[in-house]
Design a protein around this nucleic acid. Structure first.
Lengths: 334, 334
DNA sequence: TCTTGCAGTTACATCGTTGCAGAAATATCG
DNA sequence: CGATATTTCTGCAACGATGTAACTGCAAGA
């Protein structure tokens, strides 16, 4: 059996509550008493039982992180950073993979996962604002990376539209005129896909070009999605001189397929992505992309969530934070 | 305040304990009573308080996963799979990043992290067998991916040596004679690095070649480590016609640097890696590597750990499981 | 001298659940 | 039919911590 506070109290010759008071930095304790207790703790190797503490206090000091798939590089890198930031503030992160299904996202928002955590970092992919509002519960919730344009919620996001505009403009500025865009999601206007598509279209307009639906290809936001999309494009005979993958894995999958088919990158087709995952720098050719401020997102989202949990920064309304972005011009689209 | 078992008991008109019995599938309950309880649960939307249950039962139904860095693709992909397998068996996974330091690994093995979990999946990188033995504690522990050759511990690993031998032999079979190996760790004989190096050297020997220390380069097991290592090799003027990265990220970083320097892959230098992360398939050229049976490792390690936790498969001694491997011959080393 | 006030400590209840032991109701048997 | 099993259900204690309230000294003030 593990050492309990009772054991500590007994060996220190004080009451259970005094031990508790020492551990919780209660003000009025005689230094001598405090020392006795600390000695007993050291002697017995006592460690507080977190479960008991949680039951009593109602706090778990865990943050929930809901995302579709931890094996996706962007999410893996984000999760890693979030965990580090949380750790610095004395919290752990419990990850839940939703596979982007409605059912799983609702479960994460309502069910036992919620119980285990003091607050949630939530990437809504299948749910809309009203779903989230209904299932929100009473614990703090910070939305991540998606633009659910709703002042009810805290949101930490990136400049999807501006960044997509900027990188598309970069492609156009280098003389490209037929920029295919991969990873479009039909009907989506407020998700990452919709917002990035908007930036893409705005950049076309700004350059005096029309949007050609043939150049927008739906696909999974994964490497094989990008590869499949390029296969479709090439096989359909649509002409294009640049590719904008709505995230890096799509762009990398696309680039791979282009090179396999003997298309020269960037000479014949330039390729750009979005996210600046570590892999982008080391691809061959290295991938031009946009860094959406992941460090800032990690810092601010965890900071905001913990502030909410601890009752600081008690704004009634949702905060909307947008991280800055930077273009990373590399060899795939110089 | 959330609905408790007491509320359910009151509305169902039974005792607290009967509700508990229903929830725990106690045998002797009249169907009618059971139905009353279930109805009350549904009506009130009751959900068991996991913290209270944990305090009482001493079980958290969480598995701990200790690894160095979740943003490393191999670990991200492994963690994702482990979480899925655990989820199917009703467990969650709590991840702890150790940054491969002794201090953090010991903390994960002993401290509060251990308390939060019913058992640990542990990737020892800084700790040796005796450290682990000292810090083991009384909860189940399954070592992952490392060969700590110690019958005291459960271990799920891969055929590091055989697989490294096989892939080195593949390079040699294609006529390469000067195979640089990147990611060596001095002194290591039992870690992933040591075991893969052993396979490499055995393959050289089998082909009648001597081991040339100039061809073994130390580096971090990351993309930039591989790139740096190649820079060193090229700048030092050592001749080589193939590169074996001790993991895929090293190999990919190396390949990137080779291509940047104008070295043709695979014509001038063949490149092979280890792990078969998803990225390998989509690199350009696609990366020849070895798939170390990640699915099998995930299934068996979680299975073994949960069996230990639940007291099945009660072998006293440690189990040593080795997943099978497969070569994936791709364009970087055909 | 007797309050009054505060520092320092304590006992007890409580968080929501499950294990244990036993009570009540029903079934089985000679 | 009474005695003994067996089924069904209940009350109490416990898991290990913290909040509340109350108690004990001791110093200051009246």
């Amino acid at each position: 059996m593990a050492v309990t506070m009772n054991d500590v109290a007994r060996t220190a010759g004080v009451s259970l509550k005094t031990v508790s008071n020492v551990l919780n930095d209660y003000e009025f304790i005689r230094p001598a008493t405090k020392q006795k207790v600390l000695d007993a703790i050291a002697a017995l190797g006592y460690e507080a039982n977190l479960t008991a503490r949680s039951l009593r206090s109602g706090k778990t000091r865990m943050l929930g992180l809901v995302l579709s798939d931890l094996s996706a590089p962007y999410y893996a890198e984000l999760a890693s950073r979030l965990m580090k930031v949380a750790s610095d503030r004395g919290y752990r992160v419990l990850v839940e993979q939703s596979a982007a299904t409605r059912e799983n996202e609702l479960a994460a928002l309502q069910g036992q996962f919620r119980q285990l955590t003091d607050g949630l970092l939530f990437t809504p992919l299948a749910l809309g604002p009203d779903d989230v509002a209904v299932a929100q519960g009473d614990k703090p919730l910070v939305l991540l990376g998606e633009h659910i344009a709703d002042p009810r919620f805290d949101l930490v996001t990136m400049k999807n539209t501006e960044a997509a505009h900027a990188i598309t403009s970069h492609l156009l500025a280098s003389g490209r005129r037929r920029v295919a865009v991969l990873g479009a999601v039909p009907e989506d206007t407020t998700g990452s896909s919709g917002l990035r598509m908007l930036g893409y279209r705005q950049a076309l307009t700004a350059a005096g070009l029309d949007f050609d639906p043939d150049l927008a290809v739906m696909c999974d936001w994964r490497r094989d999605g990008g590869a499949t999309a390029i296969r479709q494009l090439l096989d359909s005979g649509v002409q294009f001189d640049a590719v904008f993958g709505l995230n890096d894995t799509v762009a990398l999958g696309a680039m791979h397929e282009l090179l396999m088919r003997g298309v020269k990158v960037p000479d014949e087709v330039a390729v750009a992505g979005f996210d600046d995952i570590d892999e982008a720098r080391f691809a061959s050719p290295s991938l031009t992309t946009v860094a959406p401020g992941m460090d800032e997102i990690a810092e601010r989202s965890v900071g905001l969530l913990i502030d909410r949990i601890e009752g600081n920064g008690a704004t009634a309304n949702g905060m909307q934070l947008e991280a800055g972005f930077e273009l990373r011009i590399r060899d795939s689209a110089p």
